[in-house]
Amino acid sequence: MPGFDPREPETYWGLFRREARLTAKRRGTPIAVGDPVRSTDGLRLDWRIDSAGRETRYTLLRWEDIVRDRFPRPNGRRIVETIALWWRLWRTGYLRAYKREARRFYRVIVGIHLIYAGLVTFSLLVASALMLGAGDMIPKPLVILAIPVVAYAILSGLMVVTRGKPFFVAHLVDDTAFTHAYAKGEAPEMEARLDAFAAEIRAAEGRAGEIVLIGHSSSSFFGFEALDRVLAADPDFGRRGTPVSFVTIGSVIAWITLDENAVATRAALARVAASDAIGWLDIRTKWDWLSIYRRDPLSASGLPSPKHHRPVEFHVRMPDLVEADRLSRRRFNLFQMHFQLLMSSDSPDTFDYISFVAGPEPVHALIESWRSVKAQPMGQEMEVDGW
């Protein structure tokens, strides 16, 4: 399950195929990635992976259409809703808790919103200078009325010309709004999509050697929401011989669960965390500016962990994945760092997403073998056989 991303699902297939070629070359293991096939109901993009005699069916659960309906928003709506949202988050104490649990991610989100506020202010100043500079050519009442209209046009032009780069301002501002709208129950289209995802996941039981649900970014919380729906419909899911694992990468779970309105989401998180039928692995790196990595998602959300190493944590050092020269160029590219854990690693001796997904070792077995390994302090990678 991908994050808040409006791109066509084939983008992820193209990324996976490209990175699979790199992993195959670096590790000396043939990996064949089949062509993508869209399901007739529009919920999935499926492709097959063949590696070392093992076949993996990779399914991308789609919600890019929902993202497109929420991003980009018209600037007028964005301004009004953003002011209302930040007033609520400040008034309820959310910002203090969020800063405590996700200091770096907090700085990114606050910084992005300040950049957007700066663009709005700049547009107003330029519009005021233009209109007031017209002198007596335009009546003063019309000048006053024209300033916000001209400012809106300037702001819209800036957003179109820059497309939000280099910091993807509109993307992250709208992503923030969508996350908190969902926390308040104001995203019914996503509720319906998660119900559909739950049916897809449940139907996979018994058709493969294992089921692995991978939630990246915003789908770190949409993933457990879908699994909670599966368990509500079928309490024995995962207990009939098909191992089920949940893997979170670039987790932002506390981003939503710290919102006082996210009562249902926190309850779903607690139920999935308590289910011993579903393994849970949280893969993280402190180099990912768009994730929350300081504490495990349960502790960060103010929930007790039901058992030791739930979830199992795997800390990855980015310098082990990317060579120093390329890392120095990428380190402040927010989305590059956010996607790095979904890509091939430069070193054949460390974590590699492609090998993780398509390698010979089942994911549920990896989670079990890592459960007894105590995570090293932040900044060090787990010392696990094979990685």
Rank of each mutant, 00 (worst) to 15 (best):
V263G: 08
H364C: 00
W387G: 06
D320S: 11
E368H: 11
V263S: 11
G386V: 05
M378R: 05
P311S: 14
E19C: 08
G241L: 09
I109N: 09
R54N: 09
L119M: 15
H315G: 10
V37A: 14
A151K: 00
W47C: 01
N333M: 05
E313P: 08
H364K: 01
V126T: 14
F105G: 04
P139T: 13
S347I: 07
A300K: 07
W87C: 02
H308W: 13
D5G: 00
R193S: 05
D228L: 00
R62P: 04
R7L: 02
V312K: 06
L125M: 13
P30W: 02
E200R: 13
I256V: 15
D346L: 11
P362H: 01
P139Q: 14
D385I: 10
D46H: 12
A203T: 10
S369F: 09
T56R: 02
A129L: 15
P306I: 11
I147E: 00
D175C: 03
A203I: 10
A262W: 01
P188L: 08
H171M: 00
T23N: 02
W63Y: 11
R239K: 14
L130W: 12
I138N: 02
P348T: 14
K140R: 15
D346Y: 12
L303E: 09
R207S: 15
A204N: 06
D46N: 04
H338F: 08
G386Y: 01
I249S: 02
G3I: 07
L125F: 12
K140V: 15
F314C: 12
D41N: 15
S156N: 14
K374I: 13
E323K: 09
L60N: 01
E383Y: 13
Y116P: 05
A187R: 10
F71R: 12
V357T: 10
P235Y: 11
P141V: 14
R91M: 01
S347Y: 07
I144H: 11
D41R: 13
G250H: 01
S218G: 03
K307G: 14
R266L: 05
A358G: 03
I154F: 12
T59N: 05
F167D: 06
T285N: 03
F167K: 01
